[in-house]
Amino acid sequence: MKLIYSRPKSLKKAAFHYCPGCGHSVAHRVVCEVIDEMELQDKTIGIPPPGCSVFAYNYFDVDMAESAHGRGAAVATGIKRACPQIIVFTYQGDGDLAGIGTAETIHAANRGENITTIFINNAVYGMTGGQMAPTTLCGMKTTTTPYGRDHVIEGYPLRMSEMLAPLDGVAYIERVAISSPAGIRRMKKAVAKAFQTQIDNRGFSMVEILSPCPTNWKMTPAQSWKWVGEEMTQVFPLGVYKDVMEPKHAD
């Protein structure tokens, strides 16, 4: 029998510190599979944010550089402008990208920076214990919305893909979900397309990944994956939101 599936080369052998069933783990592996297949390992710099995935540099076997909270897009801009031949990707959570880093994200997209953003949307601030995030769903209980998010007080979940898509500098945005094997396959294609967009210098590319957070959602891993697939996709519909290569909607 032939070995047909194993750990990607650019994913270090270290065990993940992530909780059982966490979406970060799957996202890490898929990004590394794409880095392997596109042979980017020796010319890529990754930028993890503060958050659960701050330890991404223990897992990604590429050059990694830490950024301040929310400033990943600006750091990536600095890198890409100084060395355009380097492939840069930021790996950001919803608090990082859609909360404190909204301005940096929007302006990097609007300038059409040739960078790729892996945006993990799990609707909570994970590392700090499950507080409300900009993408927390209405009615969703978090440690800072113990009675459920009430739009009258805390407003509505922020849809970044829809917000960034109309910007002219944006070349490719797709929202995918870690909720099923098919979802993960779809994610891999999207991540590959995003990196290809950067390689072809077409402008800003982002993959928004709806991601389960069993611990902070207080669910079992399987329940959290189902919740992503059934609940989150209601508020954050999946699909291609911008693709300058194929302007028609949906793929």
Partner: peptide, 16 residues
């Protein structure tokens, strides 16, 4: 877009 972004861009450029 802001002084905050500017200093972080400097951080990125200095990195490389």
């Amino acid at each position: 877009e802001s002084e905050v972004a500017a200093i972080n861009m400097v951080y990125g450029a200095s990195l490389v």
